[in-house]
Amino acid sequence: MKFISLGSFSIFLSFLALNGCTSEQMVKPATPKTIPKSTSTLTTPATPLTPQIIEQPPTLTIEKTIRQPAPETYTAWLSQVDHQQLVNSYKAFLSRNQADFIVPDYQMLRSARDWQQCNYTEYEVPPAEVWQNAVPTLKLLHYLRQQGIIPNVEVTSSYRSPFLNKCAGGARTSSHVKNAAIDFRIGPEQPTPEDEILIHNTKMKLCRFWQQNGKAFNMGLGVYESGQIHIDTLGYRTWGYSHSWRSSLCGEIIPE
Rank of each mutant, 00 (worst) to 15 (best):
K2R: 14
S5I: 14
L6T: 12
F9L: 15
I11H: 08
F15C: 12
A17P: 05
N19W: 13
C21E: 13
M26D: 15
V27G: 04
A30Q: 15
K33R: 13
I35M: 10
I35Y: 12
P36G: 12
S38E: 09
T39H: 10
S40Y: 12
L42S: 11
T43P: 06
P51K: 05
I54Y: 05
L60Y: 00
L60F: 00
L60P: 00
K64H: 11
Q68L: 14
T73A: 14
A76Q: 15
A76V: 06
V81K: 12
D82E: 06
V87T: 07
N88V: 08
K91P: 03
A92Q: 14
D100H: 02
D105V: 12
L109D: 04
R110A: 09
S111F: 05
Q116L: 08
N119F: 11
E122M: 06
E122F: 04
A128G: 06
A128T: 13
W131I: 07
N133Q: 13
L138Y: 08
K139N: 00
L140T: 00
H142C: 00
E154D: 11
P162A: 08
L164E: 03
L164F: 02
L164K: 00
N165F: 01
N165C: 09
C167K: 02
G169N: 06
R172L: 11
R172S: 14
S174D: 14
A180V: 03
I182G: 02
D183C: 04
R185S: 09
G187L: 02
P188Q: 03
P191M: 04
P193G: 06
E194F: 01
I199N: 03
H200P: 03
T202C: 06
K205Y: 01
L206V: 03
C207H: 05
R208I: 05
R208A: 15
Q212V: 14
K215E: 14
F217Y: 01
N218D: 08
M219F: 00
Y224R: 12
D232Q: 07
T233I: 02
R237G: 04
R246V: 06
R246Y: 07
R246S: 08
S248M: 10
L249M: 13
C250W: 03
